[in-house]
Amino acid sequence: MTNLLVLRFSAMGDVALMTPALIAIAAKYSNIQLTVVTRGNFAPFFYNIPNLNVLGINLKKYKGLLGLWRMYRDIDKLGPFGNVIDLHGSVRSRLIAFFFRCKGVPYAKIIKGRREKLAQTRRYNKKLNQLPHTVERYLNVFRKSGYDAPLQGPWLNVDGESKMFAKDYFKSIGIDKKEGQWFGFAPFAGHELKEWSFEKCKRLVEVLVSEFPDCHVFLFGGRDEAKELEILKNNLTPVHIVQGGSLGIRGELGIMDRLDVMIGMDSSNVHIAALLKKPVIGIYGTTHPVSGFGPFAQEDSGVLQVDLPCRPCSIYGNTKCWRGDHACMELIDPLDVVRRIRLIQNVNTLW
């Protein structure tokens, strides 16, 4: 059985987006073993994929060139490997791959399309051609290694432990069964420029509770965002806080799996919910889905945005607003989200 070494260390959304590609490869090639090396807490994304093992690592243990050599030695113990599939293309992953190449292991790495993305994000004379989705870029790396497979669902599996965590969480907040509509809202992102203003986030929570009297709103955030989440909750009874720090990825997956709609910025929460095939509303401003980072299989219906000549100004949101007024986000109103929810409801009813 050929053992394929798959490397992707971060970020969480990008790691989660590996799952459709890995499921496709595992479904077509029953004679291969997939060894995925990533951060240990990301392992729940790969539950129930046949012939797949996860080596969860703590990157803090492998600092510097000597640390990368030790990482290579630890990974090599799981070999021998037939191919190295580098889905990250970072300095770290390329060095690990280099060590394997020195012993004759074939290597293929992701093509990120940096030149095309630069043409999209420059200030003037932008070229907004649709670029391949990240999932498609992952599949292309497998193709270069001789493994071609069509995409097929599910994109992401939820295991029994995730469902149990979710059940315990719902019980702790006094919900015994699902009634009404359940909305998830993730108001934060990895970079501030990808976020709505806090006042708009607060207004959205209030509007959701007002427009959908039977709803429950679940606010997703980390431990360092606890105070902001409490302010957004504002003692509203149907609003609940989901803190990833205490529930972990497994718990969050179990909760997302019960939602009717997930709302958020261009962030991992929206991408993960899309992989669970939940309707999503991703609020895009600084970034743009044409860069290949739209919600998977919902690049059109799952995106809320306004057309401005300055968009996108960044691929990741780690830049400054050229206009100085953050208009790409500020021109989107909470009521626009409500209208999109009603459109999703109508489509689901017709379906």
Rank of each mutant, 00 (worst) to 15 (best):
A274S: 15
Q130F: 12
M18C: 12
I263D: 00
Y147E: 00
K103L: 06
S301N: 10
G180S: 06
I175D: 00
I23K: 11
L128D: 10
S145K: 11
T349S: 13
S172T: 03
G160N: 13
V141C: 00
D325H: 12
V54F: 01
G104W: 11
N3C: 04
L139N: 04
E161Q: 14
L59W: 11
P309L: 07
K178M: 08
K177D: 11
I57E: 06
V205T: 10
F185R: 03
K112W: 09
N235Y: 04
N234K: 05
L236E: 02
G292F: 07
R258M: 13
S93H: 05
T19P: 00
D266Y: 09
F99T: 01
R137P: 00
I344S: 12
R8V: 02
P187G: 07
M256A: 03
D86G: 04
N348R: 15
A43Y: 02
L139Q: 13
A186D: 00
A108L: 08
G244Y: 06
P309R: 09
L156R: 06
M256V: 04
L193C: 07
T35L: 12
D176R: 15
D74A: 15
V91T: 14
K28W: 00
G251R: 01
M262D: 04
R342S: 05
S30P: 08
V337I: 14
G221M: 00
G67V: 05
P150M: 01
S172I: 08
E330H: 13
G184R: 10
V36E: 01
I341P: 01
G292Y: 05
K60P: 09
V217A: 09
L66V: 14
Q130N: 13
G13A: 02
L193Y: 06
W322G: 05
M12V: 01
P213E: 04
T121F: 09
L22T: 01
F99P: 04
K178H: 07
K320H: 14
L128V: 11
I241A: 06
I110H: 08
D86V: 07
L229N: 07
E228P: 06
F185E: 01
L66M: 14
G160R: 10
K200I: 02
E225Y: 09
Q152C: 06
T121L: 03
F218Y: 03
K277Q: 13
I85F: 02
